[in-house]
């Protein structure tokens, strides 16, 4: 990868210039569609942008210096991790990537959750601590099937390079692995029925309870970027073909991401919050089951051939 390409991916597409407006668009789409399904009007499409601007203009709350470093730094780290993860996505057919970028992507995708746990404890709020604890437990819960699915994908493609995985032929392994990653989306995005760590009726916003002003704006942005990155990951890994033209790839990628957002919103609106035990049981039973089948099929490709 040349330096120009790296900067293009980071700052223009699918990085900063594309990702931030898309993040706001996705946050808006989720809110608007949820409102419509609940018989409400919902916000206008520029609302997340206005929220961001308004929060940025707010005064910062004075805290002990060490806490304040943490509380300003963690959301920034979270936002940067989201952007870096997006830059690694193999959206266009001419992106090359590098060996091992899958591992880096998985690490970047986990950073916002980790930051959120740290932020919950750093904020010294009891709600933040409860939320952080829940987030940490959930992270163990969903990462088991998520990582197993990633391993299965990598094994079946015999590569740790995202481009190779995206270009590998469609099959049972890939379908099952992408399905598992899809199952992990609601909990990674902290939406219903797995909104355990930011359960607003119980513990306010969980880890983000004590955050306000620019710090909260950064959290919101990080959350939006998580939406873009995770839906983008599913689309990149799930889509077996590339159009070949830059514009075509861009259009298909964006529209499928938005469709995924709508599907996730329907799920979030139609379900109620589960207890943490129920969420853990779901992921360790169904998520683990699916991803283990994918892994076995990936390690022993003869089984799939035999079934066919």
């Amino acid at each position: 990868m040349s330096w120009e390409k790296v900067f293009f991916a980071l700052l223009i597409f699918p990085g900063l210039l594309y990702a931030v407006p898309t993040a706001w668009l996705m946050l808006w789409l989720e809110r608007k569609f949820r409102a419509r399904m609940q018989g409400r009007i919902g916000p206008p499409f520029y609302q997340p942008f206005f929220d961001f601007v308004k929060l940025m203009a707010k005064r910062r709350v004075l805290r002990p210096s060490f806490d304040s470093i943490f509380m300003m730094g963690l959301p920034l780290v979270s936002v940067s991790a989201g952007l870096l993860a997006l830059a690694l996505l193999p959206i266009s057919s001419d992106s090359r990537g590098f060996a091992g970028d899958l591992v880096l992507l998985v690490a970047f995708l986990e950073v916002p959750s980790l930051c959120s746990v740290l932020a919950g404890f750093a904020s010294r709020s009891i709600f933040g601590q409860v939320g952080a604890t829940r987030e940490a437990i959930l992270s163990i819960t969903y990462n088991l099937p998520f990582l197993t699915a990633i391993v299965a994908l990598a094994y079946s493609a015999q590569s740790l390079r995202l481009v190779d995985i995206a270009a590998s032929p469609a099959g049972g392994v890939r379908a099952l692995a992408v399905l598992t990653i899809c199952l992990c989306l609601p909990v990674k995005l902290r939406i219903n029925p797995f909104s355990v760590s930011n359960a607003e009726q119980e513990i306010y916003s969980g880890p983000a309870t004590e955050f306000s002003g620019p710090q909260l704006a950064m959290w919101e942005l990080a959350h939006g970027l998580e939406w873009v990155a995770l839906t983008g990951l599913v689309v990149c890994l799930g889509l077996t073909f590339r159009t070949g033209t830059w514009i075509g790839d861009f259009a298909i990628y964006t529209s499928l991401s938005l469709v995924l957002v709508i599907l996730l919103t329907i799920l979030a609106t139609g379900t109620a919050r589960l207890k943490i035990q129920q969420a853990a049981r779901f992921y360790w039973r169904w998520g683990m089951g699916l991803s283990l089948v994918a892994l076995i099929l990936g390690v022993f490709p003869d089984i799939e051939r035999f079934i066919r």
Partner: peptide, 15 residues
């Protein structure tokens, strides 16, 4: 519940 959501979508906002 999903039929309720669909009905809400079709009816438009009650606001």
């Amino acid at each position: 519940i999903f039929s309720v959501l669909l009905k809400n979508l079709r009816m438009g906002p009650a606001t």
